[in-house]
Amino acid sequence: MIRIAAVGDVHLGEDAHGRLRPALERLPQHADVLLLAGDLTRHGTEEEARVVAAEFRDLGVPVLAVLGNHDYHCDEVSALTQILTDAGIQVLEGDGVVLPVGGLRLGVAGVKGFGGGFAGKCGSNFGEPEMKAFVGHTIEIADKLRSALDSLSCDTRVALMHYAPVPQTLHGEPPEIYPFLGAYQLGEAVDATGTDLALHGHAHMGSERGVTPGGVRVRNVAQPVIRSAFTVYGLEAGTGED
């Protein structure tokens, strides 16, 4: 069994040194890998990224991350990514990685994702340039996720994103803002690629558990939802073929 620890939306500010570290010290006893589902910082500054790096470096298991909307706020994504990478945290955006875990190959592909809404209640790539840019961004990211998941040669396949791929895990949020919390195209990418588990954050008032139309389990790991420094999912050997 592969043990996947995950958390999103930790929103670490410059004053947050050591907030999560005590709970992470024994991480290798709980999990084989840690996945971070975006919104690692409050404003996306380099100073905050250094706090994130200090919190999640040298944990004894591989750490993979996607960024979230807060991490984009100050337009310092390249610098943030470099700081995290230098700390041994691999940042995914339209790409993936395969890790050996107990004789199995765990594949993880990640994107930030974006909004747009869910089937029947979503924006369309039509009209004003701003609307086409909004929906076009979602489509572009979902396509990147699909390609990245498809390219993984692994036994168990996990999709990591910040925005939600299904509406179920948003339950608890005001329904009017669902289009700002996720997009069905992300779920389509998950369903098209033999993925075993999809993880996301972003929806602080949402619910932990959902499932895609194709039957893939979805988990909202936003820290306010899981109410701990991380949570752990044990995955039996997956159906994800090469």
Partner: peptide, 16 residues
């Protein structure tokens, strides 16, 4: 407003 908990988690969820 609630302050989010940051302790170690409970039992893992096994997904088959």
């Amino acid at each position: 407003v609630r302050v989010v908990e940051a302790g170690e988690p409970g039992e893992p969820e096994v997904i088959e």
